[in-house]
Design a protein around this nucleic acid. Sequence first.
DNA 1: CGGGCTTTGTGAACGTGTGCACGAATGCCT
DNA 2: AGGCATTCGTGCACACGTTCACAAAGCCCG
Lengths: 237, 237
Amino acid sequence: MPNVVGGMAPDRNRRRIPDATVSRLPVYLRILSEQGDEGVDSISSERLAELAGVNAAKVRKDLSYLGSYGTRGVGYEVAYLVYQIRRELGLTHDWPVVIVGAGNLGQALAGYGGFSERGFPVGGIVDIDESKVGTVLGGVRVRHIDELPQIVQTKRVNIGVIATPGAAAQDAADRLVRAGVTSILNFAPTVLSVPRGIEVRKVDLAVELQILSYHEQRKAGATVHAVPGGGPRSATA
Amino acid sequence: MPNVVGGMAPDRNRRRIPDATVSRLPVYLRILSEQGDEGVDSISSERLAELAGVNAAKVRKDLSYLGSYGTRGVGYEVAYLVYQIRRELGLTHDWPVVIVGAGNLGQALAGYGGFSERGFPVGGIVDIDESKVGTVLGGVRVRHIDELPQIVQTKRVNIGVIATPGAAAQDAADRLVRAGVTSILNFAPTVLSVPRGIEVRKVDLAVELQILSYHEQRKAGATVHAVPGGGPRSATA
DNA sequence: CGGGCTTTGTGAACGTGTGCACGAATGCCT
DNA sequence: AGGCATTCGTGCACACGTTCACAAAGCCCG
């Protein structure tokens, strides 16, 4: 593991990478992979920044956390950067995921090929509804949620995806945690409560749309000056 | 309740709400709506914070931006807060959306009822593939992408949803902007370049999974204990 | 009616993230 | 070989976000 770079403290550098940086590394990775495929083998922070839609200094600072060095006056070697980022993100091997919920979203996720393609093969899909069990989605048979522990163990699954209705999400999370999953990607519009050490990320469609709505409303409000009924008419209690 | 805030500047309070706060308001709104449905009519910042999984002081500061005041010693009136947040987020009327891309994801989005339910009815779905045109998804007929301007105009659409493959996303964005859309929700793994004033939000499955992967990899590296399913079986370098 | 209890609203401290600006390192050209 | 152009790495200042801590404001009870 210590691929020592000279006399500097080797692993000391591998300490905490800021969250903001971690969330940008996948973007850099995708761009660098594309550039690599196109035959580009060296890239400057400025070019990468342009492609990623961020500031060049930010790119350099982000990359500096990797301990992966570029060459001054030249830039970064694309292949080496790709390797470093993949390594830091833990993408040197596959992470099978298990999907809970075989409804609309679960089906779409299972059918979406980009999952396994990017190193996250669907190790299983489960649903609580007996009538869904047995159907095949994206080449994977839907199994009953009670089989979750078994799936997680045999397939060495660390990541669970919750694609249930909101009301069922907490139960799904509990089951996932009990089965041994330590990271959860939650598509349900619910705040999950999980034990310490379990990583949860939320993708909430409604929240995103409502944020956009806020900005739209703001634009509209700036234009329209005299809004009829501008104040709260009554408490409506 | 004296909801008429006497001498204070009324609309002066409509200053910029911090981004971080805007992104939490939808969460508060959902929780408050649920609480309201359950008959709760007053709630403290502490309780709301617990349900939202955040700090109580943060809740109070967030709500203070609304200019909507609680009652000291008591808490916030649920119905009034709901009204205020909905108003601030621009949710007092519907925002029809148009979906670009009738593939796997587009179909799932169209079929997902929660869209219209939450005030974002699907005003149209378009695809560039002639063979998809005419099929019906979630009660909406797929039309050709060339009809985008017409759909946007007649349905008064401000928000576009990109559900295309990555390679087609920039073109979709360009078409949406040309058609008059000013907010975009992008599901494609691509950094979009859009004119100033166009709001873009990104939902990237791969990025989320890779962030989780990072944390998993980190855990595995820190605690190397031989629990089955606990760590990466081999580094596979 | 006043004291005590509760809970808000917010100033201030702290932590995180961003962007500039510049020294340092490297390659290239003469 | 030396100078020049380029680009990285990073110290620093600033902006933004979070959390604490406490005074102010209201309710309740005796």
